[in-house]
């Protein structure tokens, strides 16, 4: 469990980083928190020729909460975002999800942007970004772009990031008015990737009844599965909509049937909790 040799780069700024990335192309992997990359390296499941360690890049460790939402820089650790005082007010779903990400020691090191860029469909944060319709801000040698969440997640562990492109920040839009969120998940052990998990966002109409609701489901498809969930005097229809949209598979921890059942159950629970949150 030792990685093969690679060239190690430790740029001090974004410009330098994207220059190195441009030169190394598809041979490069970016090291931020390292919570996924280092095990993959040690197990020789990835064998990049270049590791670009961005931990010394200045100006990427920020977390900013404004009226529009929360912007998280590429070096902000999960725990740093979790502790942001405005988080609960501006976008509570982020905090609800971060609590479920692995364990505190991993959250002290792992980065929010890294988790998004890793694009693991079983992870919580991609589901949050997808549900909220957030975006990823990138830089590359020729400039940069903003990639909407709907286009960002392409497949399992596959994002829209191109070789040479560095995700510099992620934007989570603020909670709309009269809205609430919840994240419900079931894992085999505390901190494990979920067997099933559902993030929910519910917006109430003027009558106090849910007007618009959607969920994002983890681990039941190649990317986070976002489903608009109708409220018809209850969430039964929502469970049906979720069951129709997801594509769970058997693995050694659970059958596809169980995952499908569980995702439906968790969707109803999460929507119920989110509705209560919205009603305050």
């Amino acid at each position: 469990m030792k990685p093969p040799a690679f060239d190690y780069h430790a740029p001090a700024g974004v410009d330098e980083a994207v220059e190195i990335l441009a030169e190394a192309g598809a041979e490069a992997k970016i090291l931020a928190g390292g919570q996924s990359l280092i095990p993959l390296l040690n197990m020789r499941l990835v064998t990049p020729g270049h590791i670009v360690d961005v931990n010394r890049v200045a100006g990427l460790g920020f977390v900013e909460a404004g009226p529009d939402g929360v912007r998280v820089g590429a070096l902000a650790r999960h725990s740093q975002v979790e502790r942001l005082p405005e988080l609960r007010r501006v976008q509570p779903l982020l905090g609800q999800a971060l609590r479920l990400v692995a364990h505190p020691v991993i959250r002290n090191r792992g980065t929010v942007v890294g988790s998004i860029a890793h694009a693991d469909p079983a992870a919580e944060l991609p589901a949050v970004l997808a549900l909220l319709g957030g975006s990823v801000q990138t830089r590359h040698a020729a400039g940069g772009r903003t990639i909407p969440a709907a286009e960002f997640f392409v497949g399992p562990l596959e994002s829209a990031l191109e070789p040479g492109e560095l995700a510099v920040s992620v934007f989570f839009p603020a909670l709309p008015p009269r809205s609430g969120t919840a994240f419900a998940e079931t894992a085999r052990r505390h901190g494990d990737y979920a067997i099933a998990g559902v993030a929910a966002l519910v917006t109430l109409g003027p009558d106090g009844e849910p007007e618009r609701a959607a969920v994002a489901c983890v681990g039941v498809g190649p990317v986070p599965i976002v489903v608009e969930t109708p409220y018809r005097a209850g969430w039964d229809g929502a469970a049906e909509a979720v069951a129709a949209a997801i594509e769970p598979e058997d693995d050694i921890h659970a059958t596809a049937a169980y995952r499908r059942h569980l995702t439906g159950v968790l969707a109803v629970r999460a929507l119920g909790q989110a509705t209560e949150e919205a009603r305050g």
Binding site: H253, A254, T255, Y258, H261
Partner: peptide
């Protein structure tokens, strides 16, 4: 026995 086993 796992939850999935019990469900089955």
């Amino acid at each position: 026995i796992s939850p999935s086993d019990l469900y089955d």
